[in-house]
Computed example of a mutant assay.
Amino acid sequence: MDARALFDLLADGDTLTVVCHNNPDPDCLASALALGRIAVAAGIDEYDIYYSGEISHQQNRAFVNLLDIDLSRFDEAAVRDREPGDLLAFVDHSKPGANNEVPEDVSVDVVLDHHPADDVQARFVDHREDVGATATILTGYVRELDVEVDETLATALLFAIRRETLGFLRGVTVAEYDAAGYLHDRIDEDLLHRLSVPSISSATVDAIADAIANRSVRGSLLVSHVGRTSERDALPQAADYLVTLEGVDTAIVFGIVDDDIHLSARTTDARVNVGEVLAAAFADVGSAGGHSEMAGGEIPLGIFADYGDDGPPLVDIVERVVTARLYEALNVDEEDER
């Protein structure tokens, strides 16, 4: 980590645009907020945080609303038509066109990320796959640079670290505990509690119930789907819940959201890397990947266009094709069901 190099790069800039990944989560949003604070400390008067997709998960909505984070919808012109002093940064993702709407030919100035990726290019790159959260990386920067960490920023970063590591139970490292120790005395405890227990919509409950009802288990692998849903963020919540089922150590849940198939995977099996599994199963038809313990994917529904455009028949076809690809990637016998 070279905090001073990042600070000097920002100090030479005039403006900063921080682009979140599609459908940003607390780790991404807290990291963007922290980078913006560093930019202000470096003398940048104006910074913007852009996002694409939706902020639909109840915790993510609460995070934005309770912390009053100023977000703008992604504007391609703002990242393409930049002046020399207009800096572009990615947090919690690393490459143009991968889980973001930035054109692949756009140059990036700053990348701060912990997700697996190859050949990350930027003027400043801090890409650490061995830490549990991007917010951990940003906590290190504000700490080393002695940037003011008020209650809002401290609460945002600590909540993001807790959420990304599933309460310090998934992918956690010593760095997360060290960051949490630094942030703890600076947080707003009431705000942290409200972020941790947001209300849940009935549609999300229904989607999770569908995932429970539609599950199939082969050995220690559970695969399920929610059919069509507007609750994209119910998929990771369902996967988090189903991987705790007795006898299950890998859970993969998928569903049709608008014009795409979304997948979410979780595992507690050290022999399984679900990021590699999803990439192997779907890289040829969509985008998929992630960490060894948690991963996600998105497949355009257009590949099923010949089967029709709505209704149970299409859902059935998607279920059969997606499940078959997952079983093949995991070398699972389709007949071994319980």
Rank of each mutant, 00 (worst) to 15 (best):
Ser287Pro: 10
Val174Met: 01
Asp27Ser: 11
Tyr50Ile: 06
Ser264Thr: 13
Arg73Gly: 01
His114Trp: 09
Val172Ile: 09
Pro313His: 03
Arg325Trp: 02
Tyr141His: 14
Ala283Asn: 13
Glu83Val: 08
Ile44Asp: 06
Ala203Met: 03
Ile261Lys: 14
Leu158Val: 02
Gly53Ser: 13
Leu301Ser: 09
Asp92Ile: 04
Arg143Asp: 01
Lys95Gln: 11
Ala30Ile: 01
Thr267Asp: 01
Ile137Pro: 15
Leu326Ile: 11
Ala42Leu: 13
Val147Leu: 04
Val205Asn: 04
Ile187His: 00
Asp109Arg: 13
Ala42Ser: 14
Pro313Glu: 02
Asp48Asn: 10
Tyr182Phe: 06
Leu9Met: 12
Ala295Ile: 15
Gly227Asn: 01
Asp75Phe: 01
Thr250Leu: 02
Ala3Cys: 14
Ile69Asn: 02
Ile200Phe: 09
Thr173Ser: 13
Leu67Asp: 00
Val205Lys: 05
Val253Gln: 07
Leu242Trp: 00
Arg271Tyr: 05
Asn23Pro: 08
Leu157Cys: 09
Leu153Gln: 06
Val243Phe: 02
Ala213His: 02
Gly43Leu: 08
Ala324Trp: 03
Asp92Phe: 04
Val274Ser: 10
Ala251Lys: 01
Glu176Lys: 05
Asp105Phe: 04
Val248Thr: 02
Glu46Met: 05
Ala78Phe: 08
Val332Phe: 10
Asp48Leu: 09
Leu157Gln: 03
Glu104Gly: 15
Leu221Tyr: 12
His193Arg: 13
Ile208Leu: 01
Glu319Met: 00
His57Ile: 05
Leu9Ile: 07
Tyr307Phe: 11
Ala156Arg: 00
Ala305Thr: 09
Glu104Met: 10
Ser287Arg: 15
Arg186Tyr: 00
